[in-house]
Simulated scan of single mutants.
Amino acid sequence: MESAEKISGRQFSLLIFSFIAPTVILVIPGLMSNISKQDAWMTIFPSVLIGALNIWIMIKLSKRYPGMTIVQYSSEILGKWLGKVLGCYLIYVWINFDFIILNQHIQFINTVFLMRTPSVIISLTLAILCGIAVYMGIEAIARCNEYLALLNFVFLIPLLLLMLAESDPERLRPVLGNGIFPVLQASVFPIAYISQFFILGWLLPFLNQPKKASKVSFISLFIISGLLCITLLPLIMVFGPLTEKLVFPVLSVIQYIGIEGSFERLEALAVAIWVMGCFIKISTTLFIICLSIGQIFNIRNYKDLVIPITILSVIGSVTVFRNYSTDLGNYLNSTYPSYAFFTHFVLPLTLLIIDSVKRSWRKSVH
């Protein structure tokens, strides 16, 4: 069944970029540097390979079931009840993801900007805006993102140039000083985030030119990977071994490179990039949650779910962790990488294998 809402190839590509890139750039460099030290930038190469495979899997499934989301074609592949069970698991995954992203937003804003503001106020203000965007539909989110993505690029370019001015290439040595294993071990972090191309399972039915799906998805992958690489390199060249000890390394380097006079307090740009990225990420996540619940429980209009899901998001974001910084750090370090790899990559790959086996079996029977 074709959706009435449609987004162009450019909007699609930018939406994926904004969904993945800002939080990846600001959050994971420290996690990667903790294991692979000065070779952290190399972890991007294995993650690009997994990201490319992820895109291929999601597009292959979408072509076999055009106009359907992964929640819908799971029932076609696994059967009605198993498909519903998987759909409920995916809803749980996205609700949990929504809580974590809003919680990260609270921590970031409390760390940088509004130290004494209650968590619920920070969460509520962004969640309300995101809820309004979801009510307007995915087309409105994608159009809004066209301008926000452009602003993100405009803010990032001068920051990267200033970072290069403070860089020391000697901090990148020795290359592979501890061998290749730490690089492969640390690559689980960018893989966990770049495998968020799993989102294609919900967005592809809204693309107005399905033939462009591969092109626009791979453009997003290479832009995100390239941006992560050119962020990581100067970051390591500025801070060296200190990178792994920083909670928000990019924010720290931005604070460090502030120029006296008009260019002081450059962290305001980092806040702008973060808030715009979180707005798109949470809006898209809320849209996916509402759409998935509507499809599983046969609710005609997913927009009827926007208000209760937005309220649930605010409550969940302030209660998901008892100790914000410690529990969130442990979750991002230990739980999320394996959990994300299974859900974003292994699960759709399993669906594709099962579907391929069923199709080949039908052909052999006939």
Rank of each mutant, 00 (worst) to 15 (best):
H105K: 05
L269S: 14
K363G: 05
Q104W: 00
D39A: 09
F206G: 07
Y135I: 02
L347G: 03
I121R: 07
Y73A: 11
L53V: 08
C229H: 12
L78P: 05
G177F: 07
L148P: 01
I311S: 02
A186L: 14
V24R: 08
G87L: 02
E166C: 05
I194H: 00
I16T: 11
Q196P: 00
A340W: 03
E264M: 14
N96I: 10
I141H: 00
Q38P: 12
S195Y: 07
P337M: 10
I157V: 15
I101C: 07
H105F: 14
G9F: 07
L200Q: 11
F345C: 08
V154E: 05
W361M: 12
F153C: 13
F17I: 15
A127H: 00
K281H: 06
D355G: 07
V365C: 08
Q72E: 15
V250Q: 09
L351H: 12
I44V: 15
P249C: 04
T23E: 09
Q107M: 13
L228H: 09
L156H: 06
R359T: 11
S47H: 03
V27D: 04
I132N: 08
V271W: 09
V314R: 00
E244Q: 15
K37H: 13
S262F: 14
Q107L: 15
P348I: 02
Y193E: 11
L82D: 03
Q38T: 10
E139Y: 02
E139A: 08
V346C: 14
G79Y: 06
V365G: 01
L172M: 10
S62F: 12
P169K: 01
F45L: 12
S252C: 13
L221V: 05
M42A: 14
N208R: 08
L227W: 02
G67W: 11
Y336P: 02
G9A: 12
I230Y: 04
G294H: 06
E264V: 13
S187Q: 01
A127L: 11
V275P: 01
N178M: 09
A213D: 13
D39T: 06
L235M: 14
F197I: 13
D304R: 15
S360I: 11
G329F: 12
G261R: 03
Q196S: 14
I16Q: 06
S47A: 15
C229F: 15
I55D: 01
T243R: 05
Y147M: 14
A149L: 05
F198G: 04
F263I: 15
P66H: 02
F19R: 00
L26W: 04
I199N: 03
A268P: 01
I128K: 00
V275K: 05
L160A: 03
G79E: 00
M115F: 14
Q185H: 06
L351I: 09
S8V: 13
L156Q: 09
I354D: 02
L82K: 09
V318L: 04
R116N: 13
S292T: 13
L53R: 00
F108G: 04
L26E: 01
N323L: 13
P22C: 04
A133C: 07
E264C: 09
C278Y: 06
L129G: 08
Q255S: 15
L14M: 13
I100D: 10
N54F: 05
M42Y: 11
V306E: 06
L200K: 09
K60P: 05
Y331C: 08
K63I: 02
K363P: 00
I296Y: 06
